[in-house]
Simulated assay, not measured.
Amino acid sequence: MKTVLLAGGFGSRLSEETVSTPKPMVEVNGKPIILHVMDIYSHWGHQDFIVACGYKAMMMKKFFHDLPFMANDFTIKVGDGAIALRPSRTVDWNVSVVDTGLTTMTGGRLRRLREWIGGETFMVTYSDGVGNIDMEALLAFHRSHGGLATVTAVQPPARFGNLELAGDRVAEFTEKVRKHETWINGGFFVFEPEVLDYLSGDEDVLEQEPLAALARNGELFAYRHTGFWHPMDTVRDRDHLSALCATGEIPWLDLRPAMAPVGAAPVGLTNG
């Protein structure tokens, strides 16, 4: 099963880094965030990736071209340049890197990949968000409801302090906001190939009319993930994720089997 990684945006909210580096290449704990995302899928045996790049596509292509040499040890004969790889990783990823256009939107990038994806069920996610998603449970859920599309619904991380008000009086002040029953789009989609028929051009934003149309037609279902999930939208997010790695326990790789998913229903299409 192929996994599409949406990796072509400008990353304007992380402009401190993305002025010179594509957002998926911004490092978390010394490793590009896109590799952290791929590690999640790889844990569950999904190792066939399509990277849909755009902004600084040449840099992305060069990175993946050089990745076998960066990820493994090798011996090089300086005389003739012959190289013998000495694998030091247990993964065997197959990565297709496709330039889907500089200004193409998320839905348009998927549409351009129709021939790469083929006629089978496939997965899609963003290259800048991580979570300890149970891929086996996600796929089982997708197959159980019979619809064309599944989105992983997550609860947004707390970013601000919380004020509990009683009229004009502050009844309680807490450092972290309490989690209420709010769900947003966390990526980690599962799509049937017919989803591509909902896309018409490069200007299509997946998270707007295409997903809204799928929801109206009763074809979009939500897999509720209550475990760890966090995007990397800002420098603060990057630093937070790096700090979590520094503890020695990477929460998005705490990939024990999940509890059974709760319910199956369309959700709001707020993009995480």
Rank of each mutant, 00 (worst) to 15 (best):
Phe189Ala: 03
Thr152His: 02
Ile34Met: 03
Cys53Ala: 10
Gly146Gln: 04
Gly45Arg: 06
Met58Lys: 03
Ser88Leu: 04
Val19Gln: 14
Tyr41Arg: 10
Ala137Arg: 13
Trp116Asp: 14
Glu172Pro: 03
Val4Gly: 05
Gly161Gln: 07
Ala243His: 05
Ala215Tyr: 10
Ser96Asn: 15
Met123Asn: 00
Asp39Lys: 09
Val4Ala: 09
Phe160Asp: 11
Phe69Pro: 03
Gly161Ser: 12
Ser42Val: 02
His145Gln: 10
Glu219Asp: 07
Lys61Pro: 12
Asp202Asn: 09
Leu6Phe: 14
Val37Met: 00
Thr121Cys: 03
Gly131Val: 08
His240Asn: 08
Asn72Gly: 14
Ala260His: 02
Asn94Gln: 15
Leu165Arg: 15
Arg89Trp: 01
Ile184Pro: 08
Arg111Val: 01
Leu165Ser: 14
Ser242Trp: 13
Met60His: 01
Val205Cys: 10
His180Arg: 14
Pro210Cys: 11
Gln155Arg: 03
Arg143Gly: 09
Pro24Phe: 02
Gly272Asp: 05
Phe228Cys: 07
Ala246Gln: 04
Thr75Tyr: 07
Ala243Thr: 08
Glu17Trp: 01
Gly146Phe: 04
Val98Pro: 02
Met59Arg: 06
Asp39Asn: 09
Trp116Tyr: 11
His46Lys: 02
Tyr126Phe: 06
Phe141Lys: 13
Asp233Glu: 13
Ala57Ile: 12
Asn72Asp: 15
Ser96Tyr: 11
Ser20Tyr: 02
Gln208Phe: 14
Trp229Cys: 07
His43Gly: 00
Glu17Gly: 01
Ala153Gln: 11
Thr100His: 00
Lys61Leu: 14
Arg178Trp: 00
Leu6Gln: 14
Arg143Leu: 04
Leu269Phe: 00
Ile34His: 01
Phe74Gln: 09
Phe221Lys: 12
Met135Pro: 03
Asp134Phe: 10
Arg109Leu: 12
Leu241Asn: 12
Pro32Asp: 11
His145Arg: 13
Glu27Pro: 01
Ala57Arg: 07
Val19Asn: 12
Gly147His: 06
Arg114Met: 01
Ser42Glu: 02
Val190Pro: 00
Asp48Phe: 06
Ile34Asp: 02
Arg111Ile: 01
Asn132Ile: 01
Ala213Leu: 13
Pro261Phe: 08
Leu148Pro: 00
Ile133Met: 12
Leu269Val: 00
Glu207Gly: 15
Gly227His: 14
Gln47Asp: 15
Trp116Thr: 08
Thr125Val: 06
Leu253Arg: 06
Ser88His: 04
Thr103Val: 00
Pro157Asn: 08
Leu206Arg: 02
Val130Ile: 03
Arg111His: 05
Arg89Thr: 12
Pro22Gln: 07
Thr100Trp: 02
Ala258Tyr: 09
Ala212Met: 05
Gly108Met: 01
Trp93Lys: 11
Asn94Ala: 13
Arg236Pro: 00
Leu67Met: 14
Phe63Ser: 06
Ile76Thr: 08
Trp252Ile: 04
Leu35Ser: 05
Arg178Phe: 03
Met232Cys: 04
Val205Asp: 12
Thr90Glu: 15
Leu148Arg: 00
Leu35Val: 05
Val78Ser: 08
His65Ile: 07
Asn271Leu: 15
Ile117Thr: 03
Asp48Val: 06
Ala52Cys: 09
Lys61Thr: 11
Asp134Gly: 09
Asn185Asp: 06
Glu249Asp: 05
Ala84Cys: 05
Leu5Val: 03
Val235Asn: 10
Ala258Ser: 15
Arg112Pro: 05
